Simulated assay, not measured.
Amino acid sequence: MHFATLPLLFAATTLASPLHKQAYLVKRACTTGPDTATDFLAYPAYVNTASNATTPPGYANTYTNLHASSNADGYAGYTTLPTYNTTACAEKCTASKNCHAFNNFYERTAVSSSFNSSCTSTATIKCVFWNGAVTTANAVNTGSTQNNFEIVIAGSNGYVASAISPATGYSAPVYFSNSGIQAPLDCNGKDTYLGFQTFDANFDASRCAAACSAQAAYALTHLPSDGSTPKTCKFFNTYVESKNGVPQDQKCVLYSQTWSKGVATNTGYAYGKDVYAVGMSYGYSNATDAGVCVKA
């Protein structure tokens, strides 16, 4: 469903960065009850539009029609739109090398008397862009109160580029920015590194998930001769390696334990006159067994 738009007006925002000087506002007839935050959240047009929104090609839908927006890793800016349009959001995200996910939603916005409406509030339609994945787990921004006006979020949908979307059997990715895992020994002084695989630079995390699962399956069918517990892949870090700024390949580094962003300290290296750098780095854990170390 499309909504009529009025001349651009200034609008409040709950995001960390300043809103553009001008923003589209969506006029809303206040016929469903008092013009309150609760009424805004229940407004049928917002619910229907979000629930029936198209999942753009190249993206996976991670949540639909929430009353919260994401607070994810790698904030990459936002824009406002005259209508709720996931396709337009996706096009803007795809056009940016720093965007791998986006969140489309309605934000309750205060209006001035010049808005000429029976409502004291309206909606700003936002597309917020992220480097890291948007998931139900990080959809925690439910709004705020500013000058006694309650800002809330309605019709919030999340989308992640298919290349980084959670692989079957693995958790949602954790974004490590431009650093790869440099894993120390585990809590028992053991090495958790299980090797790596290299693919072309067309990033696709599912290739690493398949490599991790294959290693685990092989280890379980080829038990150590000394009777020790086999080391199976429970976590992988994948990133694009660049040479002098040009993407070369995708690395899939496998581990028997999940590691956090705190040990993502590998930013690359120099070899002669060439500089190799890490970019678009993500970590994925096995969804049923993340490989948490237990002190022996």
Score class of each variant (00 low, 15 high):
residue 33 G to W: 12
residue 174 V to R: 08
residue 222 H to C: 05
residue 15 L to P: 00
residue 71 N to H: 06
residue 150 E to L: 12
residue 169 G to Y: 10
residue 275 V to L: 11
residue 214 A to R: 11
residue 226 D to H: 06
residue 7 P to Q: 13
residue 261 K to F: 08
residue 194 L to Q: 05
residue 59 Y to N: 06
residue 179 S to K: 14
residue 27 K to V: 08
residue 240 V to L: 15
residue 232 T to V: 15
residue 275 V to P: 00
residue 207 R to D: 03
residue 275 V to K: 14
residue 170 Y to R: 09
residue 76 A to R: 06
residue 102 F to N: 12
residue 258 T to C: 02
residue 225 S to Y: 07
residue 26 V to A: 15
residue 49 T to P: 10
residue 161 A to T: 09
residue 238 T to N: 15
residue 287 A to V: 08
residue 41 L to S: 09
residue 16 A to M: 08
residue 63 Y to I: 11
residue 175 Y to A: 07
residue 144 S to K: 07
residue 47 V to M: 11
residue 279 G to I: 01
residue 122 T to A: 15
residue 224 P to G: 04
residue 26 V to Q: 13
residue 73 D to K: 10
residue 94 T to Y: 04
residue 244 N to E: 02
residue 92 K to F: 00
residue 238 T to K: 03
residue 155 G to H: 05
residue 83 T to F: 03
residue 106 Y to R: 04
residue 137 A to E: 15
residue 181 I to L: 15
residue 203 F to Y: 15
residue 263 V to Q: 09
residue 58 G to R: 11
residue 86 T to Y: 04
residue 274 D to T: 01
residue 294 V to W: 00
residue 91 E to K: 14
residue 212 C to P: 05
residue 9 L to W: 01
residue 171 S to H: 01
residue 78 Y to T: 01
residue 1 M to G: 07
residue 15 L to M: 11
residue 39 D to C: 06
residue 180 G to M: 03
residue 143 G to H: 08
residue 26 V to E: 07
residue 268 G to W: 09
residue 221 T to F: 03
residue 233 C to F: 04
residue 29 A to P: 13
residue 275 V to H: 12
residue 177 S to E: 13
residue 146 Q to L: 12
residue 236 F to A: 03
residue 47 V to F: 12
residue 25 L to H: 04
residue 80 T to E: 13
residue 57 P to I: 07
residue 260 S to K: 05
residue 274 D to P: 01
residue 143 G to T: 11
residue 201 A to K: 13
residue 216 A to E: 06
residue 12 A to L: 11
residue 165 S to E: 11
residue 223 L to S: 02
residue 65 N to Y: 10
residue 114 S to I: 10
residue 122 T to I: 01
residue 55 T to P: 02
residue 247 P to V: 04
residue 181 I to P: 04
residue 123 A to R: 01
residue 267 T to D: 11
residue 159 Y to E: 10
residue 135 T to G: 01
residue 83 T to S: 07
residue 244 N to Y: 05
residue 229 T to W: 01
residue 295 K to C: 07
residue 233 C to L: 08
residue 191 D to W: 07
residue 18 P to S: 11
residue 107 E to Y: 03
residue 191 D to P: 00
residue 217 A to S: 14
residue 277 A to T: 15
residue 56 P to K: 09
residue 292 V to E: 12
residue 268 G to T: 10
residue 133 A to V: 14
residue 211 A to Y: 04
residue 143 G to S: 11
residue 158 G to N: 05
residue 275 V to R: 12
residue 75 Y to G: 06
residue 109 T to N: 13
residue 176 F to C: 00
residue 169 G to P: 07
residue 240 V to I: 15
residue 70 S to Q: 04
residue 24 Y to N: 14
residue 57 P to G: 13
residue 217 A to Y: 02
residue 125 I to R: 02
residue 131 N to V: 00
residue 272 G to V: 14
residue 167 A to H: 01
residue 26 V to C: 03
residue 220 L to V: 00
residue 168 T to Y: 02
residue 84 Y to D: 05
residue 104 N to D: 14
residue 20 H to V: 00
residue 1 M to I: 12
residue 72 A to V: 06
residue 241 E to G: 05
residue 261 K to W: 02
residue 107 E to N: 05
residue 222 H to P: 09
residue 88 A to M: 06
residue 65 N to R: 10
residue 140 V to T: 15
residue 16 A to D: 08
residue 133 A to S: 15
residue 193 Y to N: 14
